[in-house]
Lab assay of single mutants.
Amino acid sequence: LETFPLDVLVNTAAEDLPRGVDPSRKENYLSDEDFKAVFGMTRSAFANLPLWKQQNLKKEKGLF
């Protein structure tokens, strides 16, 4: 999966995202380093959170 810089994904409308980016899964296009910096946890820890908590975190970080 291709990764993009944080500033390309945060608070970006679906139509302005790079081609192929799923707007409902912007976090998947962050590098592992950016993911950890944004969410303060690994991808696996994030995946283990309840869906509502994942969505709330994504909203807080501008990735929803």
Rank of each mutant, 00 (worst) to 15 (best):
G40T: 04
T3Y: 14
L57P: 00
N11C: 13
L30F: 02
D32K: 05
D22Y: 02
L1W: 15
P18M: 04
E33M: 10
D16Q: 10
A45M: 13
L9Y: 02
L9Q: 02
V38N: 02
P50S: 07
N28A: 15
Q54P: 00
L57G: 00
L1F: 15
K36P: 02
S24G: 10
A47R: 11
K26C: 06
K26M: 15
G20L: 07
L9M: 04
T12L: 10
V21A: 04
E27G: 02
K53N: 11
L49F: 06
Q55M: 13
K59D: 07
V8I: 12
G40D: 10
Q54C: 01
E15P: 09
G62F: 06
A45Y: 08
L57M: 13
P5G: 07
E2T: 13
F64L: 15
D22H: 05
L63E: 03
K36W: 15
R25G: 05
Q55E: 15
L63I: 08
L30C: 03
G62L: 05
L17D: 03
G62S: 03
F4N: 03
A37L: 14
R43G: 01
K58H: 02
S24N: 13
R19A: 15
K26Y: 05
E27Q: 04
P50W: 01
V38H: 05
F35M: 01
V10S: 06
R25I: 06
V38T: 10
P5D: 07
F46G: 00
E33N: 09
D7P: 06
F46R: 00
V21W: 05
Q55W: 09
M41C: 07
P18W: 01
L6R: 05
G40W: 03
D22M: 05
L1C: 14
R19G: 11
L63R: 03
T42Y: 05
V8S: 08
E27S: 02
K36F: 15
Y29K: 02
Q55A: 11
M41G: 00
L30G: 01
F4L: 09
A14N: 14
D32R: 04
K59A: 10
E2S: 12
P5T: 06
L6M: 09
V8E: 07
L30H: 01
V38M: 06
D7A: 12
K61G: 04
Q54H: 00
V21D: 02
N56I: 13
K61E: 03
F64M: 15
F39H: 00
P50A: 06
D32S: 06
D22L: 05
Y29L: 04
F64Q: 15
T12W: 09
Q55S: 10
A47E: 14
F46M: 01
N11R: 10
E27I: 05
W52Q: 13
S24T: 15
L1Q: 13
F35S: 00
L30N: 01
R19F: 14
F64S: 15
F4I: 09
L49A: 01
S44G: 12
D34R: 01
E2R: 08
Q55G: 07
V8N: 05
K53H: 13
V21F: 07
L6P: 07
P50E: 07
L17T: 05
F4Y: 14
K36E: 15
K26F: 05
A47N: 12
D16P: 07
P23K: 07
P18Y: 01
Q55P: 00
A14Y: 10
P23F: 04
R19K: 15
N56M: 14
F4P: 03
P5Q: 04
E33F: 10
K58D: 00
V10G: 02
N48L: 13
K59R: 12
Q54W: 00
P18S: 05
G20P: 05
N48M: 12
R19H: 15
D16K: 11
D7L: 10
A47T: 11
N56P: 00
V38P: 00
E2H: 13
K26W: 05
G40S: 08
P5E: 06
R25C: 12
F35P: 00
S24L: 15
L63Y: 07
Y29T: 02
A13H: 10
T12M: 11
K59S: 08
F35L: 01
G62K: 05
P23I: 08
R43K: 13
S31K: 06
Q55H: 11
K53C: 14
F35C: 00
F35K: 00
V21K: 03
D34N: 05
P50N: 03
M41V: 05
V21L: 08
D7W: 14
L57H: 04
W52T: 09
D7S: 14
E15T: 09
T3L: 08
A47V: 11
L17W: 06
D22C: 08
F64D: 15
K59L: 15
E60K: 09
V8Q: 12
F35N: 00
D34Q: 07
R25K: 14
L1H: 14
A45H: 11
E27W: 01
L51P: 08
K36H: 15
V38L: 12
G62H: 05
N56H: 13
R43E: 01
N28I: 12
P23H: 07
P23G: 07
L17K: 03
F39K: 00
P23E: 07
P5C: 05
V8G: 03
E15R: 12
T3S: 10
Y29F: 08
D34E: 09
N28C: 14
G20N: 11
T3D: 04
N48F: 10
S31L: 03
G40N: 14
G20A: 09
F46I: 00
K36V: 14
K59W: 11
L49V: 02
E15F: 01
F46Y: 07
L51S: 09
E2Y: 06
V38Q: 03
N48P: 01
S31V: 03
L1A: 13
Q55V: 14
K59E: 10
N56C: 15
A47L: 12
L49T: 02
E60A: 11
D16L: 12
P18N: 03
D22R: 04
V8K: 09
V21Y: 05
V38G: 01
W52L: 08
P50Y: 01
A37P: 00
G40A: 08
E27N: 02
P23D: 06
F64N: 15
E27L: 04
D16Y: 07
V8T: 08
T3E: 06
F64V: 13
D7F: 09
L17N: 04
D32Q: 06
F39L: 07
L9S: 02
G20C: 10
L51K: 10
S44W: 12
K61L: 10
P18A: 04
N11S: 10
Q55I: 15
L6I: 12
K61P: 00
D34G: 04
T3H: 11
E60V: 08
T12G: 08
L9C: 05
G20T: 10
Q55C: 13
E33K: 10
A13F: 07
M41R: 01
T42H: 07
P50D: 08
E27D: 04
A45N: 10
F64I: 14
P5F: 04
